[in-house]
Amino acid sequence: MKLLVNGNHLQVPSNVFTIADVITHFFKHDPIVIVEHNGIILEKNNHPKQIVADGDKIELVEFVGGG
């Protein structure tokens, strides 16, 4: 499956079904992240329920602390 993630077309493995899987795939750690899926902002508790499909547009913004 291919997803448009933060402006880049990226291939994800077949075990990626939900937004929570997308987050696990792209981050090594457990991030604080805001997700927009096909133009809709998701509440955190919906990440494991939200199914992704080929061609979906996903914006991921991680909160970091350095400065």
Binding site: G7, L60, V61, E62
Partner: peptide, 19 residues
């Protein structure tokens, strides 16, 4: 809300007003 990675060339911009 904006974010960018200057090495992997990614960027994101989200309207978070619903939060």
């Amino acid at each position: 809300l904006i974010s960018f990675d200057l090495w992997t060339n990614q960027q994101a911009s989200i309207d978070v007003s619903t939060f």
